[in-house]
Design a protein around this nucleic acid. Structure first.
Lengths: 140, 140
DNA sequence: TATTGTTATACTCTATAACTATA
DNA sequence: TATAGTTATAGAGTATAACAATA
């Protein structure tokens, strides 16, 4: 297409990310879940007794923006809250949440498979190390 | 940090992208340019006689969203418009636009350097091929 | 006092629809 | 008719500020 911006890794990173986010959005549409909601379900499923603020810190979402997110999942009966010390509440999956997560996991797996399938086979082992290094979560 | 989502390439891709976009935003702040504006300046600088719609197609920005973007750059005296066939107008850098682009190029170069520097040296040659493959601009 | 959860708010980015104008 | 540009508008995502509740 004669696009000089294609030489820039930062530009490629953004375009790759938005392309894959669009695909994920499509995959999650049948469940009426947005990517952040699905990721939160997954996080709660793997880390029991997680607090709303802790989840926000892990996912890079601010406290103020976590409130409507968890409220929506609770209103749909997918998560429940257990009081802890202070105002903190532990998040947990309900039965319906666990059941939906099982379906969502398949969508995530398909997503990850598609990403890897796009990359030529010899380069696949380098995908995760490179992306993790660029993100640099421990250096932030 | 015990984050199970770190295993997922799609999640890593999004986090890496947002982290680098935040860095780019910082670098462009002194010029009062947003990433899309800076990318457009760069694109016009490398591809003369580019049309607003063509630029939008290349950058993945819709016609409707290109209008305020180009209007702002024109109002700042950074780009000019030359009538072509139909309603199409060729975009071109003004002298001030060219001068600002020279400064912006340094910011972009620093950005690209930082991205590559974060990646362990042996993996660096694979960064661009992997990101381009995931984006898949020719398959879209 | 520090942390958690909440509300309100604003800004950016993006998406759609509708309109005008030109070939 | 098809394309280019524009305007209006609505939806997400994200940012800050302020407040209440609790250790």
């Amino acid at each position: 297409m004669d696009d000089p911006l294609r030489q820039l890794p930062g530009y490629l990173l953004r375009r790759a990310s938005t392309a894959m986010m669009a695909r994920l959005h499509e995959r999650l549409a049948p469940f009426d879940l947005r990517p952040a909601e699905a990721s939160l379900l997954r996080l709660i499923g793997e880390r029991a007794q997680l607090t709303q603020s802790e989840a926000g810190r892990i996912m890079g979402i601010q406290r103020a923006n976590m409130a409507p997110l968890t409220a929506r999942l609770e209103a749909r009966g997918l998560i429940s809250r257990l009081p802890m010390s202070g105002r903190a509440q532990a998040l947990a999956l309900t039965g319906a949440g666990r059941a939906l997560l099982d379906q969502v996991q398949a969508a995530f797996a398909a997503q990850e498979d598609e990403i890897m399938a796009r990359v030529p086979e010899p380069l696949r082992p380098h995908v995760r190390p490179i992306l993790l290094a660029i993100w640099g979560p421990d250096a932030e």
